[in-house]
């Protein structure tokens, strides 16, 4: 029997309590080990979509399954272990007094203790190249370091699906490259939400475009980026001087 896909979203629709409808029936399947970019302009419903993947938002139509497990209340603890979301602002993500405590937070909430927890923290920090910063308070790190620690906080939970929300925002080119290297070195399914098209091309062989609360395009990243008409229709733009055909 083939294992279920890492992520299966079917007919997902959601309206905020104030009546604003953000998602109109999203369908998306991501296979294990894939790296997929979700592209879309500001306000396309990207963050709303992400918050459905671990059940923070819900109650609308449609279903979400993570490695076969439906995202429903009785499964939330397991779902939140399986889905690691790295939020856009690392200061929101890193809320404990030291890096070590923060990385330990997720596994400890899942019941891990003692030397096993410490080994797990060290492993996660090593995977993002931040092992020597365990005892620092997060606010003494640079922005790029904080973002990598934020990635470690969810890696410590050994997620099946790593979700990165605008991972390249506010990073200088070196930090951007370091994060890309980190992401590429991980053996995990990645869903990357962004409007940074070169970054999507660099990291994700496949992309989907989320526009007006629907998946409007799905294909190899390069093909999507070469379709100028499609990009223009959804307010996506290739930065000046960048040629996806030659990248």
């Amino acid at each position: 029997m083939t294992p279920p896909p890492a992520l299966e979203v079917a007919g997902l629709a959601y309206a905020y309590p104030d009546g604003h409808q953000a998602l109109f029936g999203v369908d998306l399947t991501v296979e294990r080990g894939e790296r997929v970019a979700v592209l879309g302009p500001n306000g396309a419903g990207k963050t709303t979509f992400v918050l459905h993947l671990n059940g923070i938002l819900g109650g609308g139509a449609g279903t979400v399954r993570v490695a076969g497990l439906p995202v429903e209340k009785p499964n939330f603890a397991e779902i939140r272990r399986r889905v690691g979301i790295v939020f856009q602002d690392p200061d929101d993500q890193l809320f404990m007094p030291t890096v070590r405590d923060d990385v330990a937070f997720g596994p400890a909430a899942g019941g891990m203790r003692g030397p096993e927890l410490e080994a797990c923290v060290q492993r996660a920090l090593a995977r993002v190249g931040m092992a020597e910063y365990a005892d620092r308070p997060p606010h003494h790190l640079s922005f790029g370091q904080r973002r990598r620690v934020a990635v470690a906080t969810v890696l410590a939970m050994e997620p099946d699906l790593l979700v990165l929300d605008e991972p390249s925002s506010n990073l200088d080119p070196a930090a951007r490259r370091e994060l890309a290297e980190t992401v590429r070195s991980l053996d995990v399914t990645v869903l990357m939400v962004t409007h940074d098209l070169p970054y999507a091309l660099e990291l994700c062989p496949r992309s989907v475009i989320l526009g007006g609360g629907l998946i409007v395009a799905d294909g190899p990243t390069k093909e999507l980026l070469l379709d100028a008409e499609l990009l223009a229709a959804y307010r996506l733009e290739i930065p000046f001087g960048f040629d996806p055909g030659r990248a």
Binding site: L51, N54, I56, A77, R80, R81, V83, G84, I85, F87, D92, Q93, F95, F105, G106, A109, G110, T153, V154, M157
Partner: peptide, 9 residues
């Protein structure tokens, strides 16, 4: 939100 996402109860 970030805390709940990591299993905070």
């Amino acid at each position: 939100l970030a805390m709940v996402s990591r299993g905070y109860t």
